[in-house]
Design a protein around this nucleic acid. Structure first.
Length: 112
DNA sequence: CTGATGACGTGTG
DNA sequence: ACACACGCCATCA
């Protein structure tokens, strides 16, 4: 069944859905949380197929740049949304990761 | 099945 | 430190 693809995507959605308010995370950290640090790009695919309601605007690249804003209904929606959450911007499309970087697994106990 | 693409990351020159 | 290139995994044509 084609639901198989949702399996991997669902992992990403689950992580993104766990991002707390006013926080952001990076593709690499999500991929690392999934155990596929090299699949950071696949994380972006999951967001592309991500259903509405998912805070995908809280996901940025390691540089803190809103690389995916181009894929939003409005290129400014992402920036406005993050600012609305109190996220500090250090550039036109760059968020302060050191102030809002959230790591997946912090909330989840995970194995180990 | 093969080729090309992609909302990234890391390494090397 | 900066610029360029490759790799990685999954999806689409």
């Amino acid at each position: 069944m084609q639901a198989e693809r949702t399996d991997f995507f669902e992992r990403v959605w689950c992580i993104v859905a766990q991002i707390p308010y006013g926080k952001v995370t990076t593709y690499g950290h999500i991929a690392a949380a999934l155990g596929a640090r090299r699949s950071a790009r696949i994380v972006g695919w999951a967001l592309q197929a991500a259903p509405p309601g998912l805070p995908c605007h809280r996901v940025v690249n390691s540089n803190g740049w809103l690389t995916g804003k181009n894929h939003f209904p409005s290129p400014t929606f992402m920036e406005e949304r993050l600012r609305s959450e109190g996220v500090r911007f250090i550039g036109p499309d760059r968020v302060d990761l050191k102030l809002h970087l959230w790591v997946p697994g912090s909330e989840s106990e995970m194995k180990r």
